[in-house]
């Protein structure tokens, strides 16, 4: 039993996560099409619903090409690192309160780590390895430049990200994600308490996931495909999925830290049975996360990519001072109110 529950939790979360990721690819294509007054993929299955399956089959069937001068081992390893790290982060996200099943209270979180936030920060920083290594091992100038850009970008935004989280931590008084969600009951979502922190964190998340407008590591007009130029087939697929997984994971983190996680404000007043409350909370969490994912997607089709100097300016001259200021104000408010 001790072992069975975590295993079940892991499989369910992994299954759902991968499913969601696969369909997010489809959603992105459909949304992009809609924004451009097109239809998008609608041929495979009913309304294109089997498109992700077709994509996977295509990627698996494709030839795996490794450049002659590439470092074969690292070239193979890099996409795995990317994907694994994107998935692992999800382990500490609480996607619901606890639920009582068959007389047993089950916590709706895979691992309740008491330094959850640090874990998340650590994992996102590790993510850069996948990209940097792929860029280096491909032995191609485009890949290398993409990889380098990625490392620089991550370093620049990590600071802002870390600092904007500290505000939240100070309010919750804990590094444990579960605690942070618990404190956001009622109207007290951190987005309201920490508006500046929210904005800086969201921006930093975009940068960390290499999503538009911060997708300089794979800027097509300059770098062909960036760090994954020399990848094909399944390995390319892994990078591709990792990008979307990162997006979902980031959305989950933002939800947890700022949007009240699984909290539904004042649900207690409705007087529903505890079991159903838990179910609703999980659903609420999912809805919040997916709305954020949609936000990620729509942003991509709305604003153009930053220039490299603009990116660096924003990171060092705006984001960093802003998050330090935010920290200072938060500290003062907590101290004197």
């Amino acid at each position: 039993m001790e072992l069975l529950i975590p295993v079940i939790k892991i499989s369910v979360v992994l299954g759902v996560l991968l499913g969601v990721v696969a369909y997010t690819v489809l959603v992105e294509r459909r949304v992009a099409a809609a924004i451009q007054n097109r239809v998008g993929p609608n041929r495979v299955g009913w309304n294109g619903l089997l498109q992700p399956l077709a994509d996977v089959i295509k990627l698996v069937m494709k030839e795996d090409i490794v450049p002659k001068q590439a470092n074969r081992f690292i070239h193979d390893l890099a996409p795995m690192i990317s994907m694994a790290i994107a998935l692992i982060t999800f382990a500490v996200i609480p996607f619901g309160d606890s639920i009582t099943l068959f007389g047993q209270a089950i916590k709706l979180q895979i691992a309740s780590v008491n330094i959850g936030i640090l874990y998340i920060l650590a994992m996102t920083s590790l993510g850069v390895y996948g990209i940097t290594l792929s860029g280096w091992s491909s032995n191609s100038k485009y890949s290398l430049l993409g990889g380098l850009r990625s490392s620089a970008q991550m370093l620049s935004y990590e600071l802002a990200m870390g600092l904007s989280v500290i505000g939240v931590v100070m309010i919750a008084g804990s590094l444990e994600l579960d605690k942070i969600v618990q404190t956001q009951h009622g109207w007290m979502w951190n987005i309201l308490l920490q508006p500046v922190g929210f904005v800086t964190f969201v921006v930093a998340s975009f940068a960390e996931t290499n999503r538009h407008p911060f997708d300089l590591p794979e800027a097509e007009p300059e770098l062909v495909g960036g760090y994954h130029t020399e990848y094909s087939g399944l390995k390319f697929g892994l990078f591709f999925l990792a990008e979307y997984t990162n997006m979902v994971t980031s959305s989950a983190v933002i939800t947890t830290l700022f949007l009240g996680g699984w909290q539904i404000p004042y649900i207690g007043l409705a007087g529903l049975p505890a079991f159903w409350v838990s179910i609703l909370q999980v659903l609420a969490f999912c809805v919040k996360v997916y709305l954020l994912v949609l936000f990620f997607i729509i942003i991509r089709w709305t604003i153009p990519r930053f220039r490299y100097d603009q990116l660096m300016n924003l990171g060092w001259k705006v984001m960093l001072p802003l998050s330090v200021l935010n920290l200072l104000v938060t500290g003062l408010v907590i101290l004197y109110l």
Partner: peptide, 11 residues
């Protein structure tokens, strides 16, 4: 962009 989503399609 969001208003475009609800416009008629050309496809």
């Amino acid at each position: 962009t969001i208003t475009q989503i609800f416009r008629p399609k050309f496809t």
